[in-house]
Each structure stands twice: as structure tokens, then as C-alpha cells.
Design a protein around this nucleic acid. Structure first.
Lengths: 201, 201
DNA sequence: AAAAAATTCAACCATATGGTTGAAACAAAT
DNA sequence: ATTTGTTTCAACCATATGGTTGAATTTTTT
């Protein structure tokens, strides 16, 4: 016995796939079962309900989204390499899980209160060391005065948006899939420049 | 006869409300009927199906989202006031329809192809005059070299993201509703500075 | 070999949901 | 007044869906 861990993992992966693409309301238990290569009975055998299964998937998604980024913010790097690292971290994450950010955004807007409860448990908090780092840069005159929260929010926005708005980007700029990927690749280099220039004195 | 226009409008408004909040999969025809203060039969009387009704609402949403912004880009304003105007336009739009951007993003990711068909009909295209304006600024040396597409994308990202990620912002920065609105209000002034500084030479 | 756990299968249930219908009531235009 | 379009109401249908069950089968552990 204990093929159970393996199966549980398969189910979670399939559920992740389906939930992230379709959202809670659009996801079908049958599709998750199919994707996992098992039958519906198993879903109930391991998780009790769609809701319970979703909770797990959402929790995992949050664990994937936040800590990695905050870890970079908390690191000892200087500002310039830190921003570069941050951008890279995001793009690596989204290359593996393209639907992750739009999934979190959609579901967190569906149930803001539940989301906040979640975050409290995961102990997500803005790293104070990073706030300090920015304040010191400003004091040293190497950076113009800016609310550290604005700075972080802007950085995340610039990383996330092109991913969640991909069809729009492809459409408005008249790109095919390859051109989009090329655009994103170039952007990975350009974005740190944009961000750092924006706070330059 | 011809109370029909009035009613059709009521239905569309209710449908907009519900669809924008819950998405297509999460929306219920009954809820739309309730919201419009009528019964389900009427929905079928005016629109033939959930799908047809949704199409209309989505189309309206797109008409609301894109042209206004592109109109500003196409205007004769100089770069600095143009960016200020652009940011203002977005924030006015989102004050009225907070769920608009997350709605479009979610549904366009659900059916990218359908979205692209839509956009073709609406004739959404990046204003070439704005691209020209940027290229001239760069040539004149008043702006550092940057892909105009990056510039537009970044500007939109910075406007949209704080709205669609509101629960996250409130949580990570430990804000209540009032503090969030205050933050956004200040941001409206700060954002043009950030954007323009980012492309300064 | 025996016991325990995992898995499949097929059928089933209750409910929700989108959609449909038809008769009746109502409103407005001619 | 008649006609035409609007609206309500209640019931109904087919289907999809989440969930459940129980027996049978297979796999793993002991």
C-alpha cells in the first residue's frame, strides 16, 4: 500500500491543470478525473468534495506564487541585481505555469475574504528588509523618493500583466505565438532597465 | 409597444453586472433575471440563450475598454499630458466598472480565439500616430530608446494591475477599504511620474 | 496465504441549470 | 374595440453535475 501518495499527487496535478485553466466554476470533476487518468470515485476517495480539492489547489498556487518572490526581495542582493533576479524569477515561474497568475487573480476576486484568510495562514507579508533597503537608497540619493509599496506593486504589475493579457498583446500588436515569445524574451532584459530608470534620480 | 428598448437595456445592465462579477461559467440566468427584476422567460424573449447574452455583454465590455484609451493615444496632446490623461481615463473607467478589467482578462483567456475574432470586428488596432510620436521623441533625444509596444504595454499594466489585484494589495500592504482608495488616489498622481521617468534619457 | 488498501466499474440519486412552452394578464398603438 | 406586442406565471423537460454507493478486482503489505 501507499500507492496513495502517488495517486494523490496525480490528482492534485490534474486538478491544478483544470482549475487553473477553467477556474472553479468552469472546472468539471469528470475532466479532472480524466486528466488524472482515474475515475470520479477516486476523487471522492482522496478528497471529499470539489470544494476541498479546490482549496488544496488554490493553497498550493499561493504557496507557489508568493514565497519565491518575497524570498528574492528578502535576499542580500543590491538593488540592481535584485530587480533583475526578481524579473527572472517571475518569468521562470510563468513559463512553467502560464495560467497561475490569472487563476489567482480571478479566484481571489471571486472570494476576497476567503483569500485574505488564506494569506493570513501562509503568513505572507511584505519583507521589511526590502522596505528598509529602498529607504536607504533614497536617503543615500541613489534613488528618487518613492513609496516602497508603489515600487513593489509596479514591479509585480510589469511582470505579471503581459502574461495574463497575452491574447490582448498578441492581438493588438499583431503577433503570432512565436513573436509573442520573442517579445517576452526581449522584455526580460528590457524590463529591469525600465524599472530602475523609473526610480533613478 | 416599445417598452422593449427599456427592458432590453435593463437586462443588459443586469447581465453585465452578473457576468462581470461571476464570469460566464459562474453566472446564473436566474440571478440575471432577478437582478433585472424580471423573470427568466423574458431573458429568452429578448436574447435567445445564455451564450448570445454573454456575447453582447462581452462585446460591450470591449467597446468600453479599448476605444477610449486608444482615442487618448491618438489625440494631439504632447507626451507628458497625454500620459497623465491616459492614467486618468483608466482610473475613471475603473471607478465606474471595477470588475471590467478582470472580466475581460478572464474571459479572453478562456476563449482566446473568440476574443481575437471579436477584436477584429471592433477594429482595435494600435494607433500608428502614437508610435510615430514616440519615435520622434526618441529621435529628438527627449526620450530614451524604447520599443513603443513595451511603452504602451507597461503603461496599461501599471494602470490595470492595482485594480485587478485589489485583494492582494489590501492584504500584503495591510490596508482596509479606505486606505486602498487613498492609495489609489495618490497613485493617480505618482504613476505618470514613474512612467515618464522610466523613459527619460 | 491472508489481510489491508487501492482502484475500477457501473449504476444511481438529488439537485441545479439552461431552456421551453402555453395560457393568461397587461399595455400600448391603431 | 381590436390588434399587436409585452410581461408574468407556473409548470415542465433534458441534461449536466457533484456526489454516493457497493460489489468486484487488483495491488501491496504483512
Amino acid at each position: 500500500m501507499s500507492k496513495d501518495l502517488e495517486t494523490e499527487e496525480q490528482i492534485l496535478e490534474a486538478a491544478q491543470q483544470v482549475f487553473q485553466q477553467k477556474g472553479f466554476a468552469g472546472a468539471r470533476m469528470q475532466e479532472i478525473a480524466d486528466e488524472a487518468g482515474i475515475n470520479k470515485s477516486m476523487l471522492h476517495y482522496y478528497f471529499r468534495s470539489k470544494d476541498k480539492l479546490f482549496q488544496k489547489v488554490f493553497q498550493q498556487a499561493m504557496h507557489h506564487f508568493f514565497p519565491k518572490v518575497f524570498q528574492v526581495l528578502r535576499s542580500e542582493l543590491a538593488l540592481v541585481p535584485k530587480i533583475q533576479k526578481l524579473v527572472e524569477t517571475y518569468y521562470d515561474m510563468f513559463r512553467e505555469q502560464p495560467h497561475l497568475p490569472s487563476f489567482i487573480i480571478h479566484e481571489m476576486n471571486q472570494h476576497p475574504e476567503r483569500f485574505k484568510q488564506f494569506v493570513k495562514k501562509v503568513e505572507i507579508e511584505m519583507p521589511k528588509s526590502f522596505v528598509k533597503q529602498i529607504q536607504e537608497e533614497i536617503k543615500a540619493g541613489t534613488m528618487r523618493a518613492i513609496d516602497p509599496r508603489e515600487f513593489i506593486l509596479n514591479t509585480i504589475a510589469l511582470c505579471v500583466f503581459p502574461v495574463i493579457a497575452r491574447p490582448m498583446v498578441e492581438m493588438v500588436f499583431n503577433m503570432d505565438e512565436e513573436q509573442y515569445l520573442q517579445f517576452i524574451k526581449r522584455r526580460k532584459k528590457e524590463l529591469p532597465k525600465f524599472i530602475l530608470n523609473a526610480v533613478r534620480k
